[in-house]
Design a protein around this nucleic acid. Structure first.
Lengths: 189, 189
DNA sequence: CAAGACATGTAACTGGTTACATGATTCG
DNA sequence: CGAATCATGTAACCAGTTACATGTCTTG
């Protein structure tokens, strides 16, 4: 039920076509809510039917038409309503943690952990760059900007603690190097 | 695709009935992979059909029969195979972060944040208690136990950073107290 | 100009959620 | 003894993923 609201948040910030939205969901808003372009198109259709957004078609010579969506008053109202409602607990689902708990192979866990660590470092860099660029003076922020900054702070916090966790795992696995098993010898990968 | 594997991990640790599993998914393994009892029953049926687990029926006088599931060799093999495969990135989905970013009402965000903070504190306490009880001497851990401990460490790390984030949000909102709006006056709740 | 990437979508499948069902046990 | 809760499930619906489709633009 919340993809719709994530789309509203994004369209309120700036109207967009389905394609542009899809790209925002690969970055920015996508850091907190992921969605594929297929989902987005389907949801946009439903939202327009329901009158939450309104699409304006721009014919393009030779190309397929573009349709830019903007939030209607109804949409704004729905978003406000949803935002004010208490948020339910957010259940976790981490394949990685399940694997770790099962602990079938120290080697593959170490490999996974290194990959994850690199991804987290990458994200953290981007978050920090974004913070430096857009929110140099946090104490001055109000309203929507403050919200954006706080969301970003959450992302930074998550990434930092994820990296720390990866380091903890790698440190714990190190002493096991070579000790663990027989089916990891050299060979094709 | 991973509920099955979470179930395998849990059943390897200790065979159980569907109901017992459902309760484990409210705690322990459920901290990393949530699932409702309906999902669990459905998945157990499929897993038995596929030969990953085997259920033994215990007739009970007056009560409905109990069925205890244990992992078969096939299941063990499947689990090992899955565990050794690289883990895909885990997309985030947080209603809370989306709301924060939309920032419709400082009041309701503060309320949500306080509730979340309390939940995180609660979990953190349980994790820490569990750590103290089961993993007093982490440097001695090996294999499955090490995995369990590292997973728990991840939980602790997530909770700690979530609490810190909540505090940051509350600190940023405080100066706005009373400034924000008109529709929050005293009244029934 | 053919091959690949970009831009925009539909359709089918699968996993997760919500609503309902049924009998036993406990408690006021 | 009736209401609430425990224990165990089925069914229908909805959201998310994967696979496919189609036309354009870029580039070697």
């Amino acid at each position: 039920m919340a993809l719709e609201h994530a789309i509203l948040v994004s369209l309120v910030e700036q109207p967009a076509t389905g394609y542009e939205l899809a790209r925002r969901f690969d970055a920015s808003i996508g850091y907190f809510w992921s969605a594929s372009h297929q989902q987005i198109y389907r949801t946009l259709t439903r939202m327009e039917t329901d009158g939450w957004i309104h699409g304006t078609v721009h014919p393009q010579a030779g190309k397929p038409d573009k349709k830019t969506y903007a939030v209607t008053d109804v949409g704004r109202a729905k978003l406000g309503q949803w935002s004010r409602q208490p948020t339910a607990r957010e259940p976790l689902r981490s394949d990685f943690a399940v694997k770790l708990r099962g602990f079938a192979s120290a080697e593959s866990i170490a490999r996974d952990t290194r990959v994850r660590r690199a991804e987290h470092v990458d994200r953290l860099d981007r978050y920090r760059a974004s913070e430096a660029k857009h929110f140099a003076e946090p104490s001055q922020l109000r309203g929507a900007e403050l919200g954006q900054w706080l969301a970003l702070r959450g992302g930074i916090s998550v990434e930092e603690s994820s990296i720390a966790w990866c380091d903890e795992i790698l440190a714990a696995l190190e002493p096991l190097d070579g000790v663990t098993d027989a089916n990891e010898g050299p060979g094709p990968r």
